[in-house]
Design a protein around this nucleic acid. Structure first.
Lengths: 355, 355
DNA sequence: ACCGCCTTGTGTATCGTTCTACTAGAACGT
DNA sequence: ACGTTCTAGTAGAACGATACACAAGGCGGT
């Protein structure tokens, strides 16, 4: 009886009008008489026609009503990572206001490690039916980014790039301030626990910053500038942003000799792991060892963590607006970050009690 | 020079082969010689061709590589609400494994209140270029759900429905157990703070359960069954799931007379708000007033909250697999929930000290 | 020489819309 | 009567790919 799923044509011939008219009934209701429009909708309902096909409509009209999201945080962790969840929430506000949907695409950040996964994310971007992309923290040259550029999709990045519109947070400047603050407290031996594209669970000292996530890299640079020659910085790459990895990494650092007097983490999530490690060893944050984070997630205040506050949600909102709100024409917006000092930092312990 | 964005045809004529061959180069690389394939890719790169157009491909092939997500939790809160974030994380695991993307669509849960918003979400579902939909907690009859059904999209629901595949959690049974547990403790006057489709900030006593979210409704029913005739239940609808609203609602309840001996919340997020209200009034949870939640989010354990543990992440995973993994053929899966008793509950205070 | 089969590649119909340009007729002012 | 403008609707060409059936050539077996 029913010959496949009905299309515009089916409805058109059932009603006895042209396909264009049926199309207009859905898209320009004011361009045809109310009577006919109702007749069309009635027949459509009767035939079980659910409105114009989405793919065909996108193909012909060139619009899709969805924007893509590409983030360093791997999909399953995006929702539980406080930074990323806040960012997405800000973005979602704007997406909702503009009656769009958001397409989250899987992304392999670990370029070197998993070629098949990288290929998968390239495919995902290639096949994504979207009007534009918000790109949070992907390195220049990432194949998925290349596809976005090649496709000519409007894009907004959170990484400085003269070829793209972008929303930046003054990461590096804030980290510099943090470095100066620690230097003033007399810290001479600082360890940085940095998020990297290594497998979760990986913990290794690194000399260069190549495997670090872009944001971690900026923070390391800023920290070095702020500390200047006051302190030596050792860098531990500890996989993506999981508290557990930071706890283990900090445990090793704290048992090592000489013990760093300050541990800087590239995120609050990491810093909370560091605090856990201190507690296990009965060390007092701010007195025995200073600890700092980044982001100022809600849990940071509760833990008394010195950190750098960033307008994460606002960043999400602005990136969304750059894509969806034509009245926002800026090419490049810089948001400032702010050092928030709490009890987890203090003067470096004066001397090594062991000597 | 360059005549628009290049298409398959452009590349085909540049290389001197048919369009079908270029298409094959991308989709069935093994069906043509390596030499030719390379030549095609080289030319494509040269012309700035970014691979087959996503919309056209979806139209012709009928596949899109994305699944839709429809949730009662409004988009901006989806990421910060612990229940929803966990659910999405589980779903995302599976989506990533199957190399799909996920399309989050805005949804107005408040059917009655905002016709324009409802219309917007209907449009979003209509225009969504997806292969299937995961639907979490939407009521039968919601217009957006109707569109999904009409479009004939494969769907998985978390609400019992003989016409759809579904993954259920034994909400009601667990709530019944909770009711019996409270009854055994001698509670005679129980207040339920329930998530509703009211505006955030709304707090009102309700007689019927019509405005409650579907999950809240089930929990109320179970609770009533478990308490049976042992206690009277008053229901407060407190808007969507925000701790702050529950704090205010609980404050009113606790200052009222007679004061309920137990406050049941339809989620842990709510319950944490209730605990905050107790603290403000110097009341001791489990001694002066018993408090229970639902979900067993991480913060619940820390707060000593009696709650019902649900396999939220697993539910997300299973719903994803039902859509994407052909080897999972069940039509209906029921997951069990478990009562977790902690210090926030105890015997009802023996008598009203005022008398 | 002949058959079948594999490999590599080709034409072309088709997916279901929206867009552009156009028309028939009514309404209207002069 | 005539030109203009408006309304309600139409015809047919895109949009950019993939599916399907088929063809040319090489090659091995009998």
């Amino acid at each position: 009886m029913m010959s496949r799923t009905p299309s515009l044509k089916t409805v058109a011939s059932a009603v006895g009008v042209s396909v264009a008219t049926v199309s207009n009934a859905y898209n320009k209701p004011e361009h045809l008489s109310a009577a006919l429009r109702e007749r069309i909708f009635a027949t459509a309902r009767e035939l079980g026609y659910a409105g114009p096909d989405a793919a065909a409509r996108s193909l012909r009209s060139g619009r899709t009503g969805a924007i893509g999201v590409l983030s360093t945080t791997e999909l399953p962790y995006a929702f539980t990572d406080p930074y990323c969840a806040t960012f997405l929430a800000g973005l979602a506000e704007v997406v909702e206001q503009h009656q769009n949907s958001m397409l989250l695409m899987p992304l392999a950040s670990r370029i070197s490690a998993a070629p098949a996964q990288v290929q998968a994310s390239v495919e995902a971007v290639r096949n994504a039916v979207i009007d534009g992309v918000v790109i949070d923290g992907i390195d220049d040259g990432h194949p998925a980014l290349e596809v976005v550029i090649n496709r000519g999709l409007p894009r907004v990045r959170s990484t400085d790039d003269p070829a793209s519109r972008c929303v930046l947070i003054e990461d590096q400047a804030a980290a510099r301030q943090l470095g100066a603050y620690l230097a003033a407290f007399g810290h001479r031996d600082v360890a940085l626990i940095a998020a990297s594209t290594d497998e979760p669970g990986t913990i290794r000292a690194v000399a260069d910053d190549r495997t670090l996530y872009p944001y971690a890299r900026l923070r390391l640079r800023g920290l070095r500038e702020g500390l200047a020659s006051a302190a030596r910085v050792s860098v531990i790459a500890a996989g993506p942003n999981r508290a557990e990895d930071a706890r283990v990494a900090a445990g090793r650092l704290l048992r090592g000799h000489p013990r760093p007097t300050a541990i800087v983490a590239t995120s609050d999530v990491f810093a909370l792991g560091v605090l856990a490690a201190l507690q296990e060893l009965d060390l007092r944050p701010g007195l025995d060892v200073s600890v700092t984070g980044f982001d100022d997630i809600p849990a940071a205040a509760a833990a008394g963590l010195t950190t750098v506050r960033q307008p994460i949600r606002e960043k999400g909102r602005l990136m969304g607006r750059m894509l969806l709100d034509p009245s926002l024409t800026e090419q490049r917006i810089v948001l400032s970050a702010e050092l928030v000092t709490r009890i987890s930092t203090g003067p470096a312990p004066s001397a090594n009690p062991g000597i």
